[in-house]
Structures are given as C-alpha cells and as structure tokens.
Nucleic acid binder design. Sequence first.
DNA 1: CAACAGGTAAACAAATCAGTTTACTTTTTG
DNA 2: CAAAAAGTAAACTGATTTGTTTACCTGTTG
Lengths: 199, 199
Amino acid sequence: MRNMNNENEAVPKKAIKRLQIIQAAFKLFTENGFYATGVDLIMRQAGVSKRTMYIYFPTKNDLIVAVLEFYRINYERGLKDLLARNDLSNREKIVAIFEEAGNWFANKQFHGCLAVNAMGEFSGKDPDIENACRVFKTWELDVFSELTKELPVMYPNDLAFKLLVLLEGMGAIAQVMKQPCPIDIKQMVNDLLDGHCVA
Amino acid sequence: MRNMNNENEAVPKKAIKRLQIIQAAFKLFTENGFYATGVDLIMRQAGVSKRTMYIYFPTKNDLIVAVLEFYRINYERGLKDLLARNDLSNREKIVAIFEEAGNWFANKQFHGCLAVNAMGEFSGKDPDIENACRVFKTWELDVFSELTKELPVMYPNDLAFKLLVLLEGMGAIAQVMKQPCPIDIKQMVNDLLDGHCVA
DNA sequence: CAACAGGTAAACAAATCAGTTTACTTTTTG
DNA sequence: CAAAAAGTAAACTGATTTGTTTACCTGTTG
C-alpha cells in the first residue's frame, strides 16, 4: 500500500515526530503533572521510540520547556480568531476572553494553568523552565495590554495587570474547587473596566 | 545532664516527633514540590528515623494530607491576632489581609499557595489530597465571608468570593513572575468594596 | 542498486523512589 | 527497678526513574 495522496505531497516529515511527542507530553503533563509523568509513558502515547525522543529532547526538562512553549502557541492560536474580529470593540474582546476562559475553567477536565503548575514543581530548580513560565505569563499580560492601550482609560497597563490577576484567580480557584463559579465574572470585569474608564 | 526545668514538667512528648515531621515536610514540599521531595530527605531534615515516620504516616500521601492541614492551621494562627483586633473595622481587616499577603508574596522565597501546588500534582490521583486542598480554599473563603457578612453590602458571599479571586490571582502571578506587584492592590480591594457597598 | 538518514524495539545502567524489616537503644511510666 | 512503649540506624526489597546503547529496519534519493 503505497502513498495514496498524490495531491499535496511533501509533508514535512521532519518535524512530525517532534510534534507528536510534544502533544502527547502536553496532555500527560496537564492531566498528571510533570514529575508524575514518566518519559516511557510519553513515548508510548506519542507512538515514538525512546531513542527518537532523546534525539529531539536530550533531557526531560528540555521537553517540558518545549511543552510550555507549545502551550503558549496553542493558547495564542485559540485566541487568534477572537482578537482578529473587527465587529467587536476591544472592551467586548476582553469580556469575551473571560467568557471563554470561564467555560474552559468550568470543565471538570480543567487542571489549572500549566505554567503555574510547572512553577510549583520546578521553582528554584530549573531556570529554563522558570523562564518558560514567565514568558507565558508575560505574553498573557501583553495580550491584555494590547487591548487596554486603545481603551479610554488612564492607566492601561495597570488595568491589564488587574485583568490578569482576575483571570489567574478564577483559574486557581476553579482548579481546586472544581465547581461552577458562583459569581458573575462578566459583571466583575465590567466593573473593573468602568472603574478605569475616563469617558 | 538530666532534665533541668523542674517547673512546667510533663511536656507532651507524644506529639513532638509527629510535629517535627510535618514541619520539615512542609518546608520541603513548599520549596521543592511534593513528588520531587523524597521521604528520606524529610526524615533526615526532621531528625527522625524512617520507621517512626511510617508509624505516624503509613504513606507519603498521608503525610501530604497532614501537611496541608498544618498549612491551614498555621495560616489561621497567623491571621488570628489581626482578626481579633477590635480597633479595626471588618473593612479595614480585609484591607490589612491583602497588605500582609502582598508582603508575603513579594518575598523571593514565596512558592505559591501550597494547596494550589498540591492540586497541580495530585488532581485526579488522590481524593484525600484533593479534599484537603478544597478544605483549605473553603476555609479561606469562610474567612472572607465572616468579614463581609457584617458589612453594609448587598451580596456578602459574592464579595467574599471576589476577594478570594483577587488573593489567588495575586499569589499565582507573584509565584511565576517573582517581581513586585506593579499595581496598587489596596486600591483594587477598596474599589471592590466600594462597588458592593450600599451605604 | 546502494548509501544513508531516521526510525524501531528492547535490553541495559545507575540512581532513586516508597515502604519494610531487623536488631538495638532510649525513654517513659506503673 | 522493670516492663513497655517509642525511638534509632541501617540494610534491604522491588518497583520505577531518567537516560544510554545496541542491533536491526525502512523509506528516500543520488
């Protein structure tokens, strides 16, 4: 059985294995934690031999750093469509982000922010992982900053940081409590936005 | 050299070893995570033999549950004096809690909320640990609820939850970013309180 | 066809993990 | 004092960990 799809040939085989490993590791790290997830299981789930794995990722921590980068890129892609919409104001986009996050957090399968979890396991132990976590949170802050800087507010960066605090808080509580959020987050976000608006 | 203090004899030796173990484990779990901390190191730091450890805590997870309870009791004791003061209004106490938390989070040694970190490592794996984490967060919420219920606000429980969201968010960001909080948290808390006040 | 890069499968090494057991010592207490 | 309770130190088990190595296979390409 040869290659059947003669259209759209030349798929970059090179990076396929690497991505398979990252995706399997991402799922396992998210669901079971970093230390608790062994490389043998990752390689089995990825359908890849151990040797291949250690060619792409010389150490497990290298893989963790790559997974955290993947986590951010994945997150970015999920937000892309929303951020690109021109039928929504920046303020509406912010509210929409919290709505989407709220739905995500409400899922029983939610396991908290991977970067926060990684920090809990590797803080003070692996600078590369620490750095990857900070890069992620910095990016999250940048997303909000991009949205608030064109809002009629006095201190857009302060507002962005407050929004991030809100998002983190929701996530952490959802992760631990695993029950629907009893408050109206949308209203809380709107109050925050109103409090900063000069117009 | 016999026992010198003939006054106040009969110190309950029984629970001393147990507490030593919990305190050493608390420190190590906080600084290095749960999976990453081996029982051999805990027992060495506690100055206790392995056998004794396994008499008090048949499994490592039993110890983790005990540490999480200790974490809560410790937290409660740290808040006791503040909550008992009668020269402060409930509103002032809430603000004071955030000020203290802010100072704590600003410390470079801060490693995030132990219950959140535990959830990141044991979510879906150990019901007892999960439960201990939820008990901790429920207690945190109760502290705020006790303070808000006597405030002139419409929905004291909602306000309490929002305060908890704020506290969690600050903690999670501080844990990852490890840099001073760029916003005025006291003002953010006051805004939140003002937004709920009917008077 | 032949060379070769990239892959598999599995055995292996060395360390570490949680937890057990044994033999002995210290401390408390009736 | 003497029995009993609680402790120590250290060897040990068996499973698991990350990471290495060996021998073999496969698809592509000059």
